[in-house]
Write a protein that binds this DNA or RNA. Sequence first.
DNA 1: TTCAACTAGTTTGTATTATAAACCATAAAT
DNA 2: ATTTATGGTTTATAATACAAACTAGTTGAA
Lengths: 118, 118
Amino acid sequence: MMPFKEMARLNKTIHEPARLAIMSALYACTMAEFLFLQEVTGLTKGNMSCHLSKLEKAGYVVIDKRFVRKKIPHTTIRITLEGKAAIEQYWKKLDHIREVTKQWDPNKKAASFAAQEY
Amino acid sequence: MMPFKEMARLNKTIHEPARLAIMSALYACTMAEFLFLQEVTGLTKGNMSCHLSKLEKAGYVVIDKRFVRKKIPHTTIRITLEGKAAIEQYWKKLDHIREVTKQWDPNKKAASFAAQEY
DNA sequence: TTCAACTAGTTTGTATTATAAACCATAAAT
DNA sequence: ATTTATGGTTTATAATACAAACTAGTTGAA
């Protein structure tokens, strides 16, 4: 199948740069604290919160909110097996597409167009 | 610098899947017809038109509209040097980030967090 | 010869989205 | 007691992707 069509079908939940950063960090960490993730990605708290919600909805992370000494909120994020699989698949697919793209010969496809006389 | 911060700063004009597909095809072709690009990317005409406009504004492509036998519109898109450089840089940066990410040790960074007693 | 259908796109509208700004609850400091 | 800081969430805004409707011309059929 045409590699370019596959590009348009990349997992967008993962593909979005901020979430790609979060997921990559979590892939290395397995689990991390909210503020730690915020620091390494450079995202604002608000954006972190939103992106994490999306990742949670997608089943890629689980968010554990607790209160330290029943007072200070403390949120821990853990990547799920599904999340690990999703990012592995994402890179695999991207690599594959790039590989195919390198070998792609436009003339094979373009021929039918070029042959038409305008 | 932290690789994850760099992810969040990927060139979004290129990063968007539809445009990544268009640019990759053009990188291989150098120049192509509107309908040809539409076919290989699987995009609708409307989306093609919008994405091409964005790429043109960014200086990554030049769009040449002419009329065949002064009647039928016929649009040719050519990637610019700037466009070629942009996509080369995009892949290069992404590869670099991935490489650094693989070697990234969360504990080096996480230590300061872990040390805090909650 | 006029009416429908097709071609090659563009424009407009809508719905999603990322991002920023404002907010909330608690704690600590002044 | 009032301000400032922490650790987030919620709301609002601005940008975006995408689809549907439209345009301008052509061709074909009745």
